[in-house]
Computed example of a mutant assay.
Amino acid sequence: MSGLHADAVAVLEGWQAPDEGQEKLRHEYLAHLAAHPDGMWKPCQDGHITGSVLVVDPAGERVLLTLHAKLRMWLQMGGHCEPEDASLPGVALREGAEESGIEGLRLLVPEPVRLDRHHTPCAWHLDVQYAALAPEGAVAAISDESLDLRWFSYPEVDEVADASVRALLHRTRVLLGG
């Protein structure tokens, strides 16, 4: 078992799910990791853990979404684990910086905000979702994985994003106190 695999197990074992559906997913993720020593990595065709992050502006009024080049959907930043990753929060922050161009993202809370399992062209993604605050004066830059990158007010997210992103935003807003 890799250090990242052990970290993912520890994160998921220690996470207090906010509702019954999230608790069920937490158990499913843990069962997946127990059955798949390679369950952190993209080649695992039965699915693999991914990390993502919803980037919130410093004022806590907008979120940064990427128009994913392959999926052609407005999503939070995120993606696959890499061998050099040491932790799930680290995966989310690395992906956030790579896809947004923003360095210095800071997790809103150290634990996941929610979990989301979805099918992609490569396999099932067992996504562990975080939220992070962008630093003051942050300037976003489009990566090669994106067709566009844009700040959206909370109401605008309802108009452009799918149910998963809307649920992530809702949980993030609860954690922000609004």
Results as ranks from 00 to 15, higher is better:
residue 93 L to C: 10
residue 121 P to K: 01
residue 131 A to T: 07
residue 85 D to N: 13
residue 137 G to E: 04
residue 144 D to E: 10
residue 77 M to K: 09
residue 82 E to S: 13
residue 118 H to Q: 03
residue 137 G to Q: 10
residue 88 L to Y: 00
residue 113 V to L: 13
residue 106 R to H: 06
residue 114 R to A: 11
residue 82 E to R: 13
residue 135 P to K: 15
residue 72 R to A: 10
residue 87 S to K: 00
residue 136 E to M: 05
residue 135 P to L: 15
residue 125 H to V: 03
residue 76 Q to L: 10
residue 73 M to T: 12
residue 138 A to Y: 04
residue 93 L to M: 11
residue 131 A to S: 12
residue 115 L to G: 03
residue 130 Y to C: 09
residue 89 P to E: 04
residue 146 S to K: 02
residue 102 I to N: 01
residue 92 A to F: 02
residue 77 M to N: 12
residue 80 H to N: 14
residue 80 H to I: 01
residue 118 H to E: 04
residue 91 V to K: 04
residue 99 E to G: 12
residue 143 S to W: 12
residue 98 E to Q: 08
residue 100 S to P: 07
residue 90 G to D: 05
residue 77 M to A: 13
residue 90 G to H: 06
residue 108 L to D: 00
residue 99 E to P: 11
residue 103 E to N: 13
residue 80 H to C: 02
residue 121 P to S: 01
residue 97 A to F: 03
residue 143 S to E: 14
residue 83 P to Y: 12
residue 96 G to L: 03
residue 127 D to S: 13
residue 87 S to R: 02
residue 80 H to W: 02
residue 103 E to S: 15
residue 102 I to F: 05
residue 112 P to H: 10
residue 125 H to I: 03
residue 91 V to A: 04
residue 125 H to R: 12
residue 110 P to R: 00
residue 70 K to T: 15
residue 83 P to H: 11
residue 102 I to Q: 02
residue 141 A to H: 15
residue 112 P to Y: 09
residue 116 D to K: 06
residue 101 G to T: 11
residue 132 A to W: 04
residue 141 A to Q: 14
residue 81 C to L: 10
residue 115 L to Y: 05
residue 126 L to Q: 01
residue 73 M to F: 15
residue 87 S to C: 01
residue 100 S to Q: 10
residue 74 W to K: 00
residue 138 A to P: 08
residue 109 V to K: 13
residue 105 L to G: 08
residue 71 L to M: 13
residue 112 P to R: 08
residue 131 A to C: 05
residue 71 L to R: 15
residue 127 D to N: 15
residue 134 A to S: 10
residue 143 S to F: 06
residue 139 V to P: 03
residue 82 E to W: 14
residue 89 P to C: 06
residue 76 Q to T: 09
residue 105 L to T: 07
residue 112 P to K: 07
residue 111 E to M: 08
